[in-house]
Design a binder for these strands. Structure first.
Lengths: 195, 195
DNA sequence: AAGCGCATGTAAAAGGTTACATGATTAC
DNA sequence: GTAATCATGTAACCTTTTACATGCGCTT
């Protein structure tokens, strides 16, 4: 199953940040998540690990075993953690749903502030997206083209659901995280209810 | 902006099925849809048009204009319509959200039965996906990993919204379409509410 | 005996983006 | 005058998939 357009290298690096794993482990983990992210082919995972190692971001530990191919467990290093943090904290721009999830899963590698910022950015992005779509639906309305109508309507539905989730999650997150760390003006972000 | 993993060729072909357009028109249309699909680069659209033409699926009509580059409007042909219908009616397998939308937008090139089947297939696919995710959330629960928890929760939320939309839409569609054309047992499909 | 899970990898091909080239017209 | 829109296209590069190679142990 294809994973789409998202540097596998960072996904792999992010997963190694949680615990040391082999290439096989990584694929298995992703497979267990089913659809959420998809399963990158071995043809992308193994080269990614190699590249990360040669970049000095991860280290390899080989366990030789008779009969079986040697198990190669990779661990993230200091440089890797830094690179990851940098990537995870970079502005997300117009990322797709899947790209969003991938980075979301790597939340543990972000500071609480970065997580909140990430969600807030997503919020305004999706909000403006939803508005655009709704404006289009309004203009279409008449029996223009069934396919376009369906697609737009679907887009609106998904975008609304995302906004609702973002709203909820930000609230929950603020309850959990230390309350002193109040971010910049949050109330400026559009609420899910009014889109 | 990347469009993800979806042969641009079929997207282009599908859009030409709606009305004759130039490569520029196609990109403009997609741009107006904002986020929903994304905007394939000219480096993929123009070659796609060429390929479609050399395959005999579309025909080109050139309008020469002084000053400006000639405007090349492509129209879908009979063979093109057939190829499109065939593609649109093929089983969707584990397609991503975006791939789903793209084909959804091409609904006008499908028979009503094919549309309903498409949505039903999506329904069972998303339902099983949602179940998997929920099972994972249940097992995780404890403070395992914030990122994974967020990602799974997000996945569940989006999947539920999709199911709700599919439910709604199938109902609306059945109201609109001739009622004689009742498909195979629909009640077997899981409802959105109980997931 | 066949097939799947474990476990690693490689090479070719496909598909797409990026960046460039070209050049007139319109809006600020 | 400067930027954006119109309008086409090419070539190098990057990422990813596909398909293969290898081979043991366990289950059906």
């Amino acid at each position: 199953m294809p994973i789409g357009v998202v540097n596998v290298r960072y996904l792999v690096l992010g997963l190694l940040a949680r615990r040391p794993m082999s290439g096989y482990d990584i694929r298995r983990l992703l497979r267990s998540l089913g659809w959420l992210i998809g399963i990158p082919s071995s043809g992308s995972v193994y080269p990614a690990l190699k590249a990360l190692e040669s970049q000095g971001l991860v280290t390899k530990e080989v366990t030789v075993r008779h009969d079986r191919p040697p198990r190669k467990v990779y661990s993230i290093g200091v440089a890797g953690k830094q690179a990851l943090r940098q990537w995870a904290s970079a502005p997300a721009s117009a990322s797709t749903l899947r790209a969003f999830v991938i980075r979301l899963m790597l939340a543990s590698s972000m500071s609480p502030e970065a997580i909140v910022r990430y969600l807030q950015d997503r919020q305004s992005l999706v909000a403006s997206h939803a508005e655009t779509l709704q404006e289009l639906v309004r203009r279409l309305d008449k029996m223009d083209d069934l396919g376009e109508l369906l697609a737009l309507d679907y887009g609106v539905a998904v975008a609304r659901a995302e906004l609702a989730w973002l709203d909820d999650t930000l609230v929950r997150l603020r309850e959990t995280l230390p309350p002193e760390e109040v971010m910049g003006d949050v109330s400026a972000a559009p609420a899910a209810g009014d889109v």
